[in-house]
Amino acid sequence: MDNIDNHGKIFDSHDRAILRILLEDSRTPLQEIGKAVGLSTTSCWNRIKRMTDSGAIQGYTVKVDLAQIGYQDTVIVQVTLDSHNQETLNAFARALESIPEVLEAFLISGDYDYFIRIAVKDTRDYERLLREQLYQIPGIRHSKSSFVLRTLKKADTPLTG
């Protein structure tokens, strides 16, 4: 199935194959990518440039094993706010942005307002983060925390795996 990017160009199976390779290792040489997807180096470069220019490729990064740098645990926190006006939502979002341990935060539908993924060193570190940072944010009515016991699957896109 082909998809159309912001510039009206079609993302085809070659583009998705290139993206899969870059998702696995963004340092893969163009020659290897071309060989793997059956295209010339120039054609691969042009496709990567088009996907970058369109915003489909937003950047290149490294994958970090959080446990290797001291963050042994992941906590999922669900939060309900007292108010849902734009000012409260914006203030809450800004406060979360200032907490480095917050990896992801989603405004969600359902019983809670936010779903937050947090990296911590251990349970004491999480207790400190709750007391010193999260619970200092005005407007939190209720929260529910769950420690991740094991990650069964982790992907940034449906193209991996």
Rank of each mutant, 00 (worst) to 15 (best):
N85S: 01
D82R: 08
D15K: 09
D122I: 11
M1Y: 13
I48V: 06
G139H: 07
F147G: 01
T80E: 05
V62I: 15
F147N: 08
Q133W: 06
Q78I: 03
I4S: 14
L134V: 05
R47F: 07
A105P: 01
Q72N: 13
A93V: 05
T157S: 07
I18Q: 09
S40M: 00
L81G: 00
S146P: 06
S98A: 14
Q72S: 12
L149T: 08
G55F: 09
I18D: 04
F92V: 05
K49Y: 11
K153C: 07
R50C: 02
L134F: 03
R27D: 11
G55Y: 11
K121N: 12
R94I: 02
Y112P: 05
S43I: 09
H7K: 13
R150G: 07
M51Q: 01
M1H: 15
A56V: 15
S98L: 10
Y114F: 00
V75N: 07
R150M: 10
R50W: 04
G38P: 04
D73S: 13
R117W: 00
A155L: 10
G70A: 06
Y71L: 00
L22M: 11
G55L: 11
K9R: 15
A119Y: 11
A155R: 14
L96G: 04
F147I: 09
S143E: 00
L39A: 06
L149N: 05
Y114C: 06
A105K: 07
P29V: 01
V102F: 00
D53Q: 14
H84P: 03
N90L: 08
Y71G: 01
S13M: 02
D12F: 12
S109K: 06
C44Y: 06
K121V: 13
R141T: 13
N46L: 15
N6D: 15
V120M: 10
D82S: 04
Q58V: 10
I33Q: 03
R117A: 08
F92I: 00
Q78T: 07
T42R: 14
I116N: 04
L149A: 10
T160H: 09
L89S: 06
Q86N: 04
D25H: 06
P138S: 00
I4W: 14
I21N: 03
Y126P: 00
D122R: 12
V120S: 08
S145Q: 04
L23E: 09
R94E: 00
S43A: 14
S83L: 08
T157L: 01
A36S: 14
W45E: 14
E32W: 13
F106V: 07
K144C: 08
K154P: 12
T52W: 13
E132H: 04
I48P: 02
T157M: 04
R47H: 05
T61W: 10
S145R: 03
L30M: 01
I33Y: 05
S109H: 13
